[in-house]
Design a binder for these strands. Structure first.
Length: 573
RNA sequence: CGGCGAUUAGCGCAGCCCGGUAGCGCAUCUGGUUUGGGACCAGAGGGUCGCAGGUUCGAACCCUGCAUCGCCGACCA
């Protein structure tokens, strides 16, 4: 490619809307342009990267035996009504009507469509297992699109779906996909970790996420210092403290705490550590026998945070987790949030494992402006349950008993699920087994955020000059930077000759034939992150020399012209 | 969806408080000079000042509403 025939579209200044490195660099390097909130155009440079990532994914998926298909972006609402997700998916699912007033959705994912497909195509266990994938555009009307393509509304995803006669077969393919994903992310040159994950709204029983480690990541991952244990913080278990609760040593007392409402304020006012307080949160729940709505009080130690995913999984707590309104709280407790506590509360109380070993603690008195001190479980509060409710913090013991936990930010670039029969049962997707019985197929699903992978790669690989692509993703492998291309015939001839030679050998080369000043060319090629550069100048050429520069080092190496190609080829191997 | 903020040339911004000729830097185009790390000189083009309404002799500026974009939070295969 010659720059004069290309749309380089680099920017010297950073557009104001971009806050993280990958977003800024994708705009500056001319990879993407924003069309509207969460919607992006992929410019030629970006499209080249996108295609490289897609090709790697496609190669590895094909190698794993998966079959590529292509499903429509637009899907009939009936399928979503069948699966039940028409009601449950919420406003993120973009719905619309066609001219005949039929309901449709823009596909945020394709479980329904692929299940419909299998229902018609798969009749016999002899056709199983089968794994079908596509690389395709998805649309999710995100509440808050941000960080460029990291969380766009429209994005490219590789999604695959496997169908099985039984759980053993599903587990085999799950493992195969897990390994395939490792190979894909290895080839993409990413630093990542597979971690145990929650299954979220897609449902299912068993799941791993593939997390690219980066400070800009929106997820938090817990790792063990001494074992392979790694889990999304949503899933990471806070094990029950080893020490047992101390016996009460103080009497219950009521303390006036004017204007102290938050844990921080109360701790400061009482001049005690936040660990000596317990915080009380009120959420919606329902009676498990009658189904009647009720408020549930969750109690955590003052310095801990509620893990909403864990709370939602407790039977009798509303899903999605909903905090009670101030009015509901006032009616049930006689006090506003900021002065709530378990003492005297008649409803259901769920206590976090760690809060449960607190003794002589402080909590709200259920009277505005007052807290209680010297509170003790059993003595002062009798009817409560104990659950794991909190987010783990650094230093907590690892759930596998080996080492302690550390926390890091991650970008979720892939996830694998064992779905089981959630969709096949709801949508009557069955197969005949050897005994001639119709049974619902076991399903798995496996996704990779293709566009997000690119942002994640840049988060991990950039410097102050621009993107430093992993070799497998770079839009071009080699840049030829001729100084005085438009004036010096010697330079122009050699640049053109090298360009032809390298292109003929199948390398992806960009020749900067704009005749720009050297600094401009150096800056642009670094910004878009071309891994290898050949610099041609009149003086060096007179001595039969050219210069080589790698994107990862600022040093230029002078080499005889005759060796320059062989030198680069050895590095590209 | 809540809180905050922004919207003026392709990009980054000033002008608004205190109403009266719409500006700066970068980018673009022309000519010249220059050519080893985002040059210089001279000139040129480019604006419904987000939209609608109001106040006023007169609104980028004051007032009201709306829209869009962003940030923080909530949310999220």
């Amino acid at each position: 490619m010659r720059t004069s025939k290309f749309l380089l579209s680099t920017l010297k200044e950073t557009p104001a809307e971009a806050s993280i490195a990958s977003h800024q660099l994708m705009l500056r390097a001319g990879l993407i342009r924003q069309l509207a909130s969460g919607l992006y155009i992929w410019l030629p440079t970006g499209q080249r990267v996108l295609q490289k990532v897609q090709n790697i994914i496609r190669e590895e998926m094909d190698k794993s035996g998966a079959l590529e298909i292509n499903m429509p972006v637009v899907q009939p609402a009936e399928l979503w009504q069948e699966s039940g997700r028409w009601e449950h998916y919420g406003p993120e699912l973009c719905r619309f009507n066609d001219r005949k007033d039929n309901n449709f959705v823009l596909g945020p994912t394709h479980e329904e469509v692929v299940t419909w497909l299998s229902r018609y195509e798969i009749k016999s266990y002899k056709q199983l297992p089968i794994n079908m994938y596509q690389i395709q555009t998805k649309f999710r009307d995100e509440v808050r699109p941000r960080f460029g393509v990291m969380r766009g509304r429209e994005f490219v995803m590789k999604d695959s779906y496997s169908f099985h006669l039984n759980k053993e077969s599903l587990r085999e393919t799950y493992e195969l996909m897990y390994d395939t994903y490792c190979r894909i992310f290895d080839r993409l040159g990413l630093t990542y970790r597979p971690v145990e994950a929650d299954t979220g709204s897609i449902g299912g029983s068993h799941s791993h996420e593939f997390q690219v480690l980066a400070d800009a990541g929106e997820d938090i991952i817990a790792f063990s210092t001494e074992s392979d244990y790694a889990a999304n913080i949503e899933m990471a278990e806070a094990v029950a403290p080893a020490e047992s609760r101390k016996a009460p040593s103080k009497a219950l007392e009521k303390i006036s705490t004017p204007n102290a409402k938050t844990i921080e304020e109360v701790a400061k006012f009482l001049n005690v550590s936040e660990k000596e307080l317990c915080k009380s949160l009120v959420v919606h729940g329902f009676n498990q026998e009658t189904g009647e709505k009720e408020l549930v009080l969750l109690v955590l130690r003052g310095d801990h945070e509620l893990n909403e995913v864990k709370a939602e999984k407790v039977p009798g707590i509303a899903k999605p987790l909903t905090m009670a309104s101030d009015e509901e709280i006032k009616n049930a407790f006689g006090a506003a949030p900021g002065s709530l506590g378990p003492v005297g509360f008649k409803g259901r109380i769920i206590v976090d494992r760690t809060a449960n070993v607190c003794s002589d603690f402080y909590c709200g008195a259920n009277e505005d402006g007052f807290h209680l001190g010297g509170v003790n479980w059993d003595r002062d509060v009798q009817n409560y349950e104990v659950q794991d409710l909190r987010c783990v913090v650094e230093g907590d013991p690892s759930p596998d008993g080996k080492g302690t936990l550390i926390l890091k930010h991650g970008i979720e670039v892939g996830q694998v699920f064992e779905l089981g029969t959630k969709y096949s049962q709801a949508m009557n997707c069955t197969v005949l087994n050897e005994a001639g019985q119709n049974i619902p197929m076991e399903m798995g699903c496996y996704g990779i955020g293709v566009t997000r992978v690119i942002a994640a790669a840049i988060e991990q690989n950039h410097d102050d000059k621009g993107i430093v692509w992993p070799a497998s993703m770079a839009p071009f492998q080699i840049a030829i930077i001729p100084i005085n291309y438009n004036k010096s015939e010697v330079v122009r001839k050699e640049a053109d000759r090298l360009y032809q030679e390298l292109t003929a050998k199948g390398y992806e080369v960009i020749l900067d034939d704009r005749g720009e000043r050297p600094g401009v060319m150096f800056a642009d090629m670094k910004l878009i992150g071309v891994p290898h550069s050949i610099i041609l100048g009149e003086k060096s050429l007179a001595d039969g020399m050219a210069e080589y520069e790698s994107r990862t080092s600022d040093e230029k190496v002078k080499l005889p012209l005759a060796e320059i190609v062989a030198n680069i080829e050895s590095q590209l191997k």
